[in-house]
């Protein structure tokens, strides 16, 4: 049977591996989405400017106002998703560690209970 130190090391490895994969998802997702927002806000300003020169081009300030509200909602979506992705990573780490514990102590626990 494995000793506590070995089990601890195995748990840490399992957790780190699971969390590592999860964190990669967060670190790829969030910056890319925030970059899109910056580009989008610039596009809104450009389209209003076009409309003010020729009202057949771009769109009105009233439309721009709604698009800005949409961008605020999209920002909330990205923040909630980022939190959720982090929690998914935590969950996977916890599950991986639990799995190690379960395997290591299965026989003993069955005897105790």
């Amino acid at each position: 049977m494995a000793n506590a130190e070995e089990i601890f090391e195995e748990m840490m490895d399992a957790g780190q591996n699971a969390f590592g994969a999860g964190w990669t998802a967060v670190s790829k997702y969030a910056p890319a989405e925030f970059r899109k927002m910056a580009v989008q806000i610039q596009a809104i300003a450009e389209n209003v400017a076009k409309y003010q020169i020729d009202d057949r081009e771009g769109y009105s300030p009233e439309t721009a106002k709604i698009l800005m509200k949409m961008q605020r909602d999209a920002c909330e979506s990205v923040l909630v998703a980022t939190t959720q992705l982090t929690l998914v990573a935590v969950q996977k780490a916890m599950d991986a560690m639990y799995d190690v514990l379960r395997k290591a102590f299965k026989g003993v626990v069955e005897a105790v209970l």
Binding site: K36, A43, N47, M70, A74, S77
Partner: peptide
Amino acid sequence: DALSIANQ
């Protein structure tokens, strides 16, 4: 623009 934002 709306599609790009909503798709986020």
